[in-house]
């Protein structure tokens, strides 16, 4: 009788331990901190200016499907795909994009992917990416790629209540 009681106590003990360990991850998980969204201030307007060394073409190596047509230019802001599609690239002509969403106080990232033409062209290509606060550039970087490769890169910049700080 005593032996069975001891077994039962052990089962209760081990069962409790199991329940605790299986829920431990949930208990210890802290809620993810949400960076404060950028408050729109009068006169503050963040925009992107993209100036390519090439005219965009349909990318034969893009992943395309019925639900996802291939785009010649993809822009992601903090991981989110910019919609609608930002438009066409023309050699030497700046393309101005005014993102409506997703910028927040702290570090922001803008990823640009574009496909230069492949045909008989082994020249390097690039896109100058400028992040503009009104008329003032807060980040300015040119992304280069060797001939045949995608022009692909990330531009980071900081925004705070006192004013943006590009890098």
């Amino acid at each position: 009788m005593r032996f069975i009681l001891v077994i039962l106590i052990w089962i209760v003990f081990v069962g409790g331990l199991f329940t605790y360990t299986s829920h431990r991850a949930d208990l210890s998980a802290a809620p993810a901190a949400q960076p404060p969204a950028l408050e729109k201030q009068p006169g503050t307007r963040i925009s992107l200016e993209l100036t390519p060394t090439f005219s965009g073409t349909a990318d034969p190596f893009a992943r395309r499907s019925d639900t996802r047509p291939a785009a010649q230019l993809t822009v992601r802001i903090n991981g989110q795909l910019l919609k609608p599609s930002p438009g066409e690239l023309h050699r030497g002509r700046p393309l101005l994009i005014e993102p409506q969403t997703s910028l927040h106080v702290g570090t922001n990232e803008i990823m640009v992917v574009a496909s230069p033409p492949l045909e008989d062209d082994l020249a390097a290509h690039g896109i100058r990416v400028r992040i503009m606060d009104g008329r003032r550039p807060i980040a300015d970087r040119t992304i280069w790629a060797e001939g045949g490769a995608l022009v692909s890169g990330v531009v980071s910049f900081d925004l705070d209540a006192g004013g943006p700080d590009g890098r």
């Binding site: 190596f61 992943r63 001939g147 045949g148």
Partner: peptide
Amino acid sequence: AELYLHQLRVLDAWIRQ
């Protein structure tokens, strides 16, 4: 598929070179 398509792109550029 996206990663493999990148590899095919690199292969194509390498063949041209």
